[in-house]
Design a protein around this nucleic acid. Structure first.
Lengths: 342, 342
DNA sequence: TTGTAGGCGTTATCAG
DNA sequence: CTGATAACGCCTACAA
C-alpha cells in the first residue's frame, strides 16, 4: 500500500479534492466557480456543497500561472503619505475590497525612473489592470503601459492623449480659478508659493500665471518654489522668502493645503492680518482648512472619487465593456472661506 | 513539420530558454539565481550572460506555486489615510524596495472582522512574512498568525505576549507622560479628548487616568470621546463638548495631533488664550505641530522607524537569524512647545 | 557541483 | 454541458 505523497502545500484542499467529492471533473469545478452560467444547475449545487464542506479556496498563484493573468490591480502613486494620494488609494481599496482582485501598490517617490522600474516589476505579474498617477510618464513607461495587455487608467489629471483611460481634473484650471478668486476679491500682488513642484503643481502654476497675465500683473518675483517635499513648516519658510522678495504682496495662492496652513501660521506669528492684509488660497481642501481660524479658502478636489471611478472604469473594461468616454473630468470646486473674505 | 505550440504566456523567455542558451540544466539556472554560492564560478558567469542577453526574469507566480512560498510581505493596517499608519507603511515600502519581496497591503478599517477576513486571504498566498498593526487581534486572527508558518511582526505597541515579534512603544506611558507634563506645568483640570478610540487610544486614556488619579484629580466628566474618525474639525467640536461639560477645564490632552489642532483652532476662535487659559498636548508630533502658532506640545512617536525595524526583524527571521529580542520598544519623546509654556 | 524526474494547483484546448 | 489531457514556469527531492 503506497503512502500518498505528502502535499508540499499546507494540506489545503485542492480542486481535485472538490472534484472527487462532487463526482465531477476538476475542470467542471473550475468552471462552476468562474462561469456558473456554463454549468448545469445540478452540478453547480453539488460542487458548491463540496466546496463548502471542504473549505476549498482556489490558489491564486496556481490560477495566475495557468491563466497567464493575475487577479491583481497594479497601482502606482508618487507618495504614500501625501494625503491626496492616500485618499485616491483608499478609494481604490474600498472599491476592490469585495472583489477577487488584490492590489499591488507601488511608491514612485515622484521619480520617473522609479516608475519605470516598478512598472517592469508589475508587468511580470500580468496584472488585470494598471492605475497610475499622472500623465507625464517617460517614453519607456508609456510603452510598458501600452504593451501591458490590460486596461490602464491614469488618474489625477485630464489630458488629450491617455494611454487608455483617464480620470481626474484640470490642474491648470484649478490654479487659474483660485487666482481669479483672489483677483475678484480685490487682491492684486498675488504670490504663488509651491513646494515639490511635480507636473501637476507646474500646471497649477501655469494657471496662476495665466490669470495674472490676463490682468497684466504677472511678475516672476511673485513666484516662490522649492523642490523640497511639502510640509506645513515649509509653508512658513516659503512665505518668509516670498515676503523678502516682495514685501508688498497681498495674496498667496498655495500649491497645496499644507503650504497654505504654514502660510497662515506664519502670518499669525508675524501679526499679518488674514484676510485683511494678505489673502490665502490653498489647494485640495483638506478637512483642516474648514476648521482653521480663520478658515481657509481652497480648491476642493475629489480624490476618493477619482480612485473609485478609476476602478469602476477598469472593472468595466475587464468585463469587456469599453466605457463611452475614456476621459472623465471630475472637476473641482472653489470653496470660499474667511481667508479671502475681505 | 509540426508547428511549435505557441506559448500561452506572452512569449517571455523561460528558465528553459536560459538553460539551453547557457548549455546547462534548468535547475542550475534556478540555483545560480537563488543560491549563487552553490554554483561554480564558470557556470554562473555563462548563466548570467544568457540571462542578460535574453532579458530573463523569473515568473513570481510560477515560483510561488512551485515553492509553496510567495515572496510577499503581508501588511495589515487599520487606515491608509491616517498619517500615522501611512508613515509606518512608507517605512516598510522603503525597506523592501531593493529586495525581491512584494508587499500585499490590507486596510482593516479598524475592524477585527475585516482583519480576520484579510488574514485569511493573505494566508492563501503563503507570504514570506506578516506585519500587522496592534496587539489586540481576535482569537481567530491570532490563530491565523500563529499558523501562518512565517515570521510575524506586530507593530505600534509593546506588550508581554507577542505572536512572534513586536516593535512599538507604550501608549499607556505616552499618555501618562503627556498628562504629567501638563500637571508639571501647573494645569489641574486637565481634560482628555479623543476620537475613534481604538485600543491604542484606550491605553493612552488609561495613562492619562493613571496620572490624574495619582494626584487625586481624575474626574470622569473630564473625559470626552467619540467613536467617529479623527479629524481637525472634530477636535473643535469635542472641545466645545468638553467645555460644556466642564467649563473650568484648563488643559487638554488630545488623543492625536489632528484633534489637538482642532482644539487649538477652537480656542483661538473662542478667544481662549493658549497656553495661558488652556494648555494643549497632542500625540504623534506631526510636522504641523511645530509650525502651528502657538506651536503645540506633543508626544513624538517613531512611526517610520517602526516600519523599518519591523522589516529588518522579519528579514532576519527569514534568513534564519532569530533576533535576540523579540520585543523592541522604540519609545517616544515629549516635545515641549508653546502650547503648554505658561 | 550538476542533472533527471516529477509535481505544485489551476486553466486552455479540444473532443465528446 | 462535461471531461481528458496537456501545459503554465519553476522548484523539491533524489541521484549521479
Amino acid at each position: 500500500m503506497t503512502r500518498p505523497r505528502s502535499r508540499r502545500g499546507g494540506g489545503r484542499p485542492t480542486i481535485a479534492d472538490v472534484a472527487r467529492k462532487a463526482g465531477v471533473g476538476a475542470i467542471t469545478v473550475s468552471r462552476a466557480l468562474r462561469e456558473p452560467g456554463r454549468v448545469s444547475e445540478d452540478l453547480r449545487r453539488q460542487i458548491q456543497a463540496a466546496v463548502d464542506e471542504l473549505g476549498y479556496v482556489p490558489d491564486p498563484n496556481a490560477r495566475a500561472l495557468a491563466s497567464a493573468r493575475a487577479e491583481v490591480f497594479g497601482v502606482l502613486v508618487p507618495s504614500l503619505t501625501n494625503n491626496v494620494f492616500a485618499e485616491v488609494v483608499r478609494g481604490i481599496y474600498d472599491s476592490l475590497s469585495d472583489s477577487p482582485f488584490r492590489i499591488q501598490l507601488g511608491n514612485t517617490h515622484y521619480s520617473g525612473l522609479e516608475e519605470e522600474r516598478l512598472l517592469q516589476v508589475f508587468a511580470l505579474q500580468r496584472p488585470a489592470a494598471l492605475i497610475v498617477a499622472g500623465i507625464d510618464q517617460t517614453p519607456l513607461s508609456r510603452k510598458l503601459l501600452e504593451t501591458a495587455g490590460c486596461p490602464v487608467v491614469q488618474v489625477m489629471e485630464t489630458g488629450p492623449d491617455p494611454v487608455d483611460m483617464l480620470v481626474g481634473f484640470s490642474h491648470f484650471d484649478g490654479g487659474r480659478t483660485a487666482t481669479e478668486h483672489l483677483i475678484e476679491m480685490g487682491y492684486r500682488r498675488i504670490a504663488f508659493i509651491g513646494a515639490r513642484m511635480d507636473p501637476r503643481s507646474q500646471r497649477r502654476l501655469a494657471g496662476y500665471r495665466a490669470a495674472m497675465e490676463a490682468i497684466g500683473l504677472f511678475d516672476p518675483r511673485l513666484v516662490t518654489t522649492t523642490p523640497l517635499l511639502s510640509s506645513v513648516s515649509l509653508g512658513r519658510e516659503l512665505l518668509r522668502d516670498a515676503l523678502a522678495k516682495m514685501p508688498s504682496l497681498d495674496g498667496v495662492f498655495c500649491n497645496n493645503d499644507d503650504i497654505a496652513l504654514g502660510v497662515l501660521f506664519e502670518c499669525r506669528r508675524a501679526a499679518i492680518a488674514v484676510p485683511k492684509t494678505i489673502g490665502i488660497v490653498g489647494f485640495n481642501d483638506l478637512d483642516m482648512m474648514q476648521a482653521a481660524f480663520p478658515s481657509v479658502t481652497s480648491v476642493r478636489t475629489h480624490r476618493y472619487e477619482i480612485g473609485r471611478r478609476a476602478v469602476a472604469m477598469a472593472l468595466a473594461a475587464i468585463a469587456g465593456q469599453r466605457p463611452q468616454q475614456r476621459v472623465v473630468d471630475l472637476g473641482f470646486q472653489l470653496i470660499r472661506r474667511e481667508s479671502t473674505a475681505r
